[in-house]
């Protein structure tokens, strides 16, 4: 799946993003989709659920489906630490709690910062990404929530 970043797309991508760390890499989630940041706690596992969906949490009455981003992106599994967070994302009527090793900040991304994904990227990972940006000399991958939901519904 080739990701061509069109002019309109880059314009769309500009805005506020939540910068987070997964394993050793930096990823960003679209700011408007983020509802809340939650300190990590052990989810309630659901029998028969796939590894990418390790369980459920109750966040002030809202039942969030926990998503293991490491499994989805093919990253090395990490042990939850003091900095581990759930990023509560509401997208297309679905409430998700994405596990991040740490959440860094809300950052503003300009359109000219957005770059196309490297062609050498693993397709499994690439299908979940919109583009990459350079932020403070570091490459940040921008996650595509539509793709994420699609992948979660289909497999893993």
């Amino acid at each position: 799946m080739s990701v061509a970043v069109s002019e309109s797309n880059t314009h769309q991508l500009a805005g506020t993003w939540l910068l987070m760390r997964l394993s050793t890499e930096l990823y960003a989630l679209p700011g408007p989709a983020v509802r809340e940041l939650i300190r990590y706690r052990a989810p309630v596992p659901v029998p028969g659920a796939p590894p990418s969906l390790p369980g459920l949490i109750n966040q002030r009455g809202a039942i969030l489906t926990v998503v293991n981003m490491h499994v989805l992106l093919g990253l090395e599994q990490t042990v939850p630490s003091r900095t581990s967070r759930y990023v509560y994302v509401h997208h297309e009527e679905t409430d998700l709690a994405l596990i991040a090793d740490s959440v860094i900040d809300l950052i503003d991304i300009a359109a000219d910062q957005v770059q196309a994904l490297p062609t050498s990227l693993d397709p499994v990972r690439a299908q979940l990404l919109e583009a990459v940006v350079h932020h403070e000399d570091q490459i940040v991958a921008l996650l595509d929530l539509d793709a994420l939901l699609r992948v979660l519904r289909e497999a893993l």
Partner: peptide, 8 residues
């Protein structure tokens, strides 16, 4: 965390 949430 709170500040971030507040910002959100």
């Amino acid at each position: 965390l709170l500040a971030l949430n507040a910002a959100i």
